[in-house]
Simulated assay, not measured.
Amino acid sequence: MNHFNIPTYDILSFEREIGNGVTNPLLMRTQHDLYVVKTIDHKEEPKVLINELVCYKLAKLLDIPIPDVAVVNISQHIIQSTPKLIELGVQPGKHFGSKFVSKAQPNLQPPMLRIATNLEDIPSIILFDQIIYNDDRTTNRGNLLFDLKQKRLLAIDHSHVFKIGALWDEVQLKRIHEEGICLIKEFHGHNYKVLLKYVNGNNPFNKVLQKVSELTIAAIEWCVSDIPDEWGLTDGERGVMIEFIWYRIENVAEILKLLKDQCPDWKGGDLSGF
């Protein structure tokens, strides 16, 4: 996929709290559509928004099924006219929005996958999680959606990635990087128990590996570019994030070896190119 611009929309109104996930996202209306918005407020730090935007861009390059996103601008006027936003301490300015999927079911269950039209994306999601070190996907029942209209599995919620979520800084991410390659912890949590039966056959990762092979360091630099200034990403943090992601991409072969031991229905296949 070619590089693309992330749109910026103005928030017109607050609809309700979503009530799903640690970050307590908000359903808000823009001039184009409804978005699930993660904000900078009393509770959440800008790193949550940085993680989401960077991982979205990487997901699109790897053809991971994920809702479209936008940077959304919340004005002081909207905040002052909305008691809930005042209560939450939402700051005026740019925040992260993921397009609302109106007919969708969280809490993934096996019957949903029996009618899913994109089962071939399951290995892609699992490998993507290892690249971004997304511990949250295995046990958090709210960060996979099943689109009931399209009958597609969607990956959402990438705030708690890079092993320690929004707590990372330049020093911490360097330390995690130096620990070497490993899989996410609690690999056999609820969601992965449901997903792993679809990592089967001889070459289940072929689709995503083709996309991985097309990545360059310039593509990762693009993923970490154009972060809104008010989110506070420093040049040093940008650099270590690029190094972290690129190192894990360069070591996909090692990740695949570790995955092979955890995926009993994966029969093998030629991985000599990775």
Rank of each mutant, 00 (worst) to 15 (best):
N2V: 07
P7S: 05
T8M: 01
D10W: 00
I11W: 06
I11N: 02
L12I: 01
F14A: 05
E15A: 06
E17G: 14
N20M: 11
N20A: 12
G21S: 08
N24D: 04
L26A: 00
L27I: 14
M28W: 15
Q31W: 02
H32D: 04
H32R: 00
D33G: 02
D33S: 04
D33E: 11
D41M: 05
E44H: 09
V48M: 13
L49W: 06
I50F: 10
L53S: 07
Y56S: 06
Y56G: 04
L58Q: 06
L62F: 10
I66D: 04
I66G: 01
A70Q: 01
V71Q: 01
N73R: 04
N73F: 09
S75G: 07
S75I: 00
H77G: 00
I79M: 07
S81F: 02
K84T: 03
L85S: 07
I86M: 04
G89I: 11
V90P: 00
Q91K: 15
P92A: 12
G97R: 02
F100C: 00
F100T: 09
S102H: 13
P106F: 13
N107P: 03
L108A: 12
I115Q: 15
A116G: 06
A116S: 14
T117K: 14
L119R: 03
L119F: 03
I122Y: 13
S124N: 14
I125V: 06
I126E: 09
I126M: 13
L127T: 08
L127P: 03
N134Y: 14
D135G: 13
R137N: 12
G142L: 12
D147H: 06
L148A: 08
Q150P: 03
Q150L: 09
Q150M: 08
L153C: 04
L154C: 03
A155V: 01
V161F: 04
A166F: 03
W168P: 02
E186L: 12
F187E: 01
H188E: 02
Y192H: 15
Y192T: 12
L195V: 03
L196Y: 04
L196G: 01
Y198V: 07
V199W: 05
G201I: 05
N202K: 04
N203Q: 12
P204R: 11
K207E: 15
V208G: 14
K211S: 14
S213F: 01
T216E: 05
T216N: 00
W222Y: 15
V224A: 04
D226A: 14
I227M: 06
D229H: 13
E230I: 13
E230T: 09
E230L: 09
G232R: 11
T234H: 06
T234I: 11
D235Y: 05
G236M: 10
E237T: 01
E237N: 06
G239L: 02
V240H: 08
V240M: 11
F244N: 04
W246T: 01
W246Y: 14
I255Y: 07
K260C: 01
Q262W: 10
C263P: 06
W266R: 00
G269T: 09
L271E: 11
